[in-house]
Simulated assay, not measured.
Amino acid sequence: MTENVHVAVYDTFVDWEIGFAIDHINKPLWHKHPGRFAVTTVGVSSDPIVTMGGMTVVPDTTLDEIGPQDSAMLILAGNDIWNTEQFTPFVTKARDFLDAGVPVAAICGATAGLATAGLLDDREHTSNAAEFLGGLGGYAGGHLYRDAPAVSDRDLITASATAPVHFAREILERLDVFGPSVLASWFKLYGQRDPAGFHELMAG
């Protein structure tokens, strides 16, 4: 049975931050179990949104139509609305997922939205910088901040805006999309820009 990986979409959604992750989730090449996952976009409503790159996206479904039981993961891209009421429904849904033990992956401004809701207070995490989160109201997780491109702790994945490939690696590993050797070669190619990774993938 196909499992949905839900990608939250909202105005100012930062396209490129999750591209490596969703492309390789949706494309069955090198997958351990081709066809296991499908990327499904989810909005607060069915109205089209406009991404940071100017693309118009019509959500496949809405937040009120999904729950943790319907999903393998919720992915939250960066945005310029993380500190507004527009982002609140997505933070609420992220809390529901984490409470149910279903993973959430957040990058860039989405990490700040989770931080203000206290969702980073008891998990190791990262973001664009410690200072980016440090002054936020509602955030008390500074002692668990890690200066790393991406961090996974239990069911939460967080990443810096400058680390989309590291973010994707954590997501692909958590979902068990690739086998360990394939994931290592994939990261060698995309994360380390080493062409040997491509030849390893093609040989496999």
Rank of each mutant, 00 (worst) to 15 (best):
V102F: 02
F90W: 01
Q86V: 12
N79M: 03
V57S: 00
D64Q: 13
T158M: 03
T158P: 00
D64L: 01
M73C: 07
K93I: 06
T111F: 04
Q69E: 12
L156N: 00
A110T: 01
L76V: 11
S160Y: 08
A94F: 11
S152L: 04
T126H: 10
T111I: 04
N83Q: 05
A105P: 04
A161R: 07
D147M: 05
T61P: 06
L144K: 15
W82E: 02
D60R: 03
G142H: 02
A112I: 09
D121N: 14
A106S: 14
G135D: 09
A130P: 06
P149I: 13
L120R: 01
I66V: 15
T116K: 14
T62F: 12
D121P: 06
D60S: 05
T158H: 01
D153L: 06
C108K: 03
T56V: 13
A100S: 15
T126E: 01
D153G: 03
D96W: 01
L76S: 08
D80W: 12
T126A: 08
D70I: 10
N83A: 11
L119R: 04
L119A: 00
A100M: 12
S160M: 01
V57N: 10
C108R: 04
L119C: 02
A129Q: 09
L156T: 13
H143N: 09
A129S: 15
V151I: 15
T158Q: 06
L114I: 07
A140L: 06
I66W: 04
T158F: 05
F97Q: 05
P68K: 12
P103D: 02
L76K: 11
G137A: 15
Q69S: 14
V91T: 15
A106H: 08
R154L: 07
S71N: 05
T61N: 10
